[in-house]
């Protein structure tokens, strides 16, 4: 897996114009991530509370509609 090093990415961003910034946003910070032992390990918790958040928020909205 090649996650860009901080310096590579910083250099890229320094010189980037608006449309390259949009591209960076999409291809470097989004998309399916299949890497990262530690990220995945923590992501298990991440996903659990995201689901919790989704359920709580949905419940909150249902209440608001009543």
């Amino acid at each position: 897996m090649t996650t860009p090093s901080r310096t590579e990415a910083a250099r890229l961003l320094d010189e980037a114009d608006a449309s390259l910034l949009d591209l960076v946003d999409n291809v470097l910070t989004k998309g399916v991530v299949i890497d990262g032992e530690i990220i995945l390990g923590l992501a298990g918790v991440d996903l659990v509370y995201l689901r919790l958040g989704a359920i709580l928020c949905a419940a909150d909205r249902i209440k608001a509609q009543r």
Partner: peptide, 17 residues
């Protein structure tokens, strides 16, 4: 937008490096 992305991408170099 550049600043925001610097922040985001900066976080992506994961702890294992």
């Amino acid at each position: 937008l550049r600043q925001e992305l610097e922040h985001r991408v900066g976080e992506l170099a994961p702890a294992r490096w």
